[in-house]
Write a protein that binds this DNA or RNA. Sequence first.
DNA 1: TGTACATCAGTGAACGCGCGTTCACTGATGTAC
DNA 2: TGTACATCAGTGAACGCGCGTTCACTGATGTAC
Lengths: 208, 208
Amino acid sequence: MNNQPRGRKAYHHGNLKQALVEATLSLIQEKGPTGFTLAEAARQAGVSPAAPYRHFKGREDLIAEVARQGYILFAEQLETAYNRGKPTPLTAFEAVGRAYLDFARTRPGYYIAMFESGVSTVGNPDLNMVENRAMAVLTQAAENLFEHLPKSQRPPATMVSHHIWAMSHGVVELFARGEPGGRAPFSPEELLESGIGIYLRGLGVIPE
Amino acid sequence: MNNQPRGRKAYHHGNLKQALVEATLSLIQEKGPTGFTLAEAARQAGVSPAAPYRHFKGREDLIAEVARQGYILFAEQLETAYNRGKPTPLTAFEAVGRAYLDFARTRPGYYIAMFESGVSTVGNPDLNMVENRAMAVLTQAAENLFEHLPKSQRPPATMVSHHIWAMSHGVVELFARGEPGGRAPFSPEELLESGIGIYLRGLGVIPE
DNA sequence: TGTACATCAGTGAACGCGCGTTCACTGATGTAC
DNA sequence: TGTACATCAGTGAACGCGCGTTCACTGATGTAC
């Protein structure tokens, strides 16, 4: 059903929904969430401005779909990096941190739709679910880290995952945007890696 | 010069520039940076849509001014909290962290203009200066923390301040926005305080 | 103290623009028999 | 295999809207003499 007659414009696009998602990604990337308009996404997909309404309730709904797909990819990428805690819980955890940053940098369109577009995951069950799935990877990775700690010394894993998420997000927003070297004398990678390292030492899971 | 004849609308506003800044703050707070329009700010200040152009080059310029004032207030608030490192470097540092969060929560309009409006401090010397001033407080507070550490163990203070900034910003963006309890089972205050605590322990400036 | 005049800080009308959305429509596709 | 028909996924024109910005203007204020 994806095969339109090649070489002549088909009346039916064939895959408009996804084409709109991709147009949204590239527009958001270029001009920020403000710069994105439904009309332009339609234009970029080679379709009239009314066409998107066959697939989305409106502008907001399209952005939300982009965010939803983004969360899924995000969770997958984190899961892959986590690799079920192999080879060691610690290296796996650190790999997740790097994957976070990598996602934000290589897929800025998704990242922006997810975190900077103003879509709220509260009150949108679909979004909420995929967001939790991504979060769960971080929490799981944290949990594993504490295996060897005496129970009394284990911090709540969700707290740790929130800390890591906050620091990663902060690094992305403040230091991984705009011109290289914009705000910081350190690369985002260095910054996140060293930050997580110090934090983990404070947690007692890295010996000094 | 601030005294207009009371009780009758004056042809000259008297303090329009600041009134526009305040209108911008409240609009940005309510509707986000996207929802802000020059026209509405003018309306809210009780003035024609052309009037703002006597004081600002345009929409962007007004937002930049709001951000600029925000950075100054921000730096002042951090400085006050820092209190020259009294009573101890550690408590002073922690107070700065709390002040960061407090600023973001009690002055969301400024915070949003500074960090979420898309104004870039790069290439705007005025903004750059005040941003650095705020940053310097964090760096100074970090530096003090290491007084008692042997030189070889001292991490670069700017790195530390960047870490703290990132974590604070992350907490604000992810957990201090939207409905209470939106994304996290912890309050932003708890989250930031515990996060910084663990980090400082990792730095070796808090004994376990 | 009064007056002439320059400057400042507003007005209000107008512009062109592009957006989001709706509508009745139509061409293409899929399906039942 | 062919045909009738329902449904799907587009079109294109139109709408009302509010925005940012410009313009010639004017009323208020400040200053030199």
